[in-house]
Design a protein around this nucleic acid. Structure first.
Lengths: 342, 342
DNA sequence: CTGAAAGCGCTTACAG
DNA sequence: CTGAAAGCGCTTACAG
């Protein structure tokens, strides 16, 4: 068979190194992978040559023989929360990627229509041996992806949760802590009717937030309504209009995303409701958006990059066969800005 | 050697199919790949069995034998423009991904610190045979990635441009057309001092915009200044403050990104400059952000998803050995909103 | 401590 | 029209 020599520079293989070092390919492989059973001298010589010729493993060959692709997968449903306009996603991706890169692991990204298609993507990746593990974001109530990864024995870590996570380790967001912080802040400012424009109840995180929100309110002796939305700015605006024009009129509204908070702020301004004079506005997620609008928005800040990185690190450990327990909720901090009178 | 049977369900191989069909592995491969040299009957039988057992190619094996990874790469520099807060990136990614998926091609994503690290990522991907081609976004003036892909003979398509693109095909954004549209709109409204808060001059797109901006102004007999920034909201705010407090005070400011436009709007409001009364504000990129703030922002709209998809399609064709010429600039449309008095 | 060899799951000339 | 075989570039028991 003719040598399929594509154009461009030649990529050295372990055979080339073996020849130059005068050893077998096996020895080269041992040296490159840090396996025992090689004299220090030989090992050093091999590594020097590999370095010199600029050898990099052919990932396909390694994957085929070692049954490891050296890649992790992230599939996300497009329309809803994730790929929306929230900086949250970019930061999360950035954190995940940094951690994977540091471990020489590639990230495969697939953007699909809905959570069912996410499940199909997982199955295909598994069948094609494309990935060694996956990250699951935006956990749904009764999420179909959980039984899939369990059935396939595909290492997986859930970013967010808790919910019906089966045996899959998860990294809870700051849902419970964040909502608590926000309610306590508003109650301390004297608010007694605190409404919330929430995301979709199909998400596990929304359920957690709603539950904790109600608990925190009743603990403080305050009251509040919850309106669910699909995270779009239109839905956020509509919900705000509804809340501001229907008794009991709130003195504070909490939004599940920054873009909805900004949309709500605009509605309040259009209705002639002074912010923060007559209405306090709080965004759950913090982002540059909250800083840039006027009045600037009070929000719940946390380090999303670090959060993504920890989840990715857990996945890497899981793939390496380590036990990965479920984690504590990430800490979050309330940043008081003009929209709550701060 | 023991069969390395991982846990979980078993993944069928062509050997399994060959056995069940009573043919050789070679015939199975031919059938699966639609190659000639097989009776229609046999082919159909093989395909039926493959379907039945749910066969999917082991990508590593296919990559190793066919020298094709079935993946494309996208490396991006983190801090600056791309992964910033602009919806542009999410939409672009979404469009790229949709097109690649439709062609059964995976997307590898890497987020790095700067353009040099992007170049290193390209080299590593190439050396590891991780990708069949790459997409280059955020083209710089004298971009170091261009000579790298040329040296490696790595199929590449530039998203954006033109600039120093060598022989690499590029998909120009709507820089020239967009700036022209914006200037014409403002001039038609009677503005004669139109300033611009631009991005970094290190980007090819900024250079195009600045050149065309000046041409359009002088063609219309109008005047205007350009301040370069690093795309951060702080820089956008500072630039706005500077322009609004230094003669000749502009009656309109054009921003190179939506987040800077919003930041600029806030500065104008703080300085007591009524928008659109005394100052018109225009954002180059359109997004939900522009709709949500008050006053809503006039912007230059275009279908970023379609744009990303076309670039991805070109890359796929390039990888398949087709000739891909450089494309026409994408059409863009001006959406007049409250910030220009619309 | 080292080498020769089998195997991962495909593709693809080559011979019948 | 079909089969047997080599090869892609690695890893990894096994024998010396």
């Amino acid at each position: 068979m003719p040598r399929r020599q594509g154009p461009g520079p030649r990529r050295p293989t372990i055979a080339d190194i073996a020849e130059r070092a005068g050893v077998s390919k096996g020895s080269v492989s041992y040296a490159l992978n840090g396996n025992p059973g090689l004299s220090d001298h030989t090992r050093r010589r091999i590594l020097a040559i590999a370095e010199e010729v600029g050898w990099q493993p052919n990932r396909a060959a390694r994957a085929l023989s070692a049954s490891r692709s050296g890649a992790c997968g992230l599939a996300l449903a497009r329309p809803a929360r994730t790929l929306a306009y929230e900086p949250f996603f970019s930061k999360l991706l950035s954190g995940i990627e940094a951690e994977l890169s540091a471990n020489q692991i590639a990230l495969m990204l697939q953007i699909v229509e809905d959570v069912e298609a996410e499940g199909e993507a997982l199955r295909r990746w598994w069948a094609e041996r494309r990935v060694d593990g996956v990250l699951l974001v935006d956990l749904r109530v009764d999420d179909p992806r959980v039984p899939i990864v369990e059935e396939l024995h595909l290492p997986a870590v859930i970013v967010g949760g808790p919910g019906s996570t089966g045996n899959v380790p998860f990294f809870p967001g700051n849902d419970a802590g964040g909502v608590t912080r926000i309610v306590e802040h508003l109650v301390a400012l004297g608010h007694t009717q605190v409404d919330r424009v929430a995301g979709s109840p199909a998400f596990a995180s929304t359920q957690v937030r709603t539950r904790v929100f109600k608990q925190a309110l009743s603990r403080a002796g305050a009251r509040g309504r919850v309106v669910n939305t699909d995270y779009t700015s239109t839905a956020g605006a509509d919900a705000t209009r509804k809340l501001l024009t229907k008794e009991p009129v709130p003195t504070a509204i909490v939004y599940d995303s920054d873009i909805m908070a900004v949309a709500g702020l605009s509605v309040a301004q259009e209705l002639g409701v002074p912010v923060p004079g007559n209405l306090a506005v709080v965004s759950f997620d913090d982002s540059i958006l909250c800083e840039v609008v006027r009045p600037s928005l009070t929000a719940c800040a946390r380090d999303v990059e670090v959060y993504g990185a920890s989840a990715a690190r857990a996945l890497v450990r899981l793939i390496e066969g380590e036990d990965v327990g479920t984690q504590e909720e990430a800490p979050s901090e309330l940043v008081a800005r003009a929209s709550t009178g701060g």
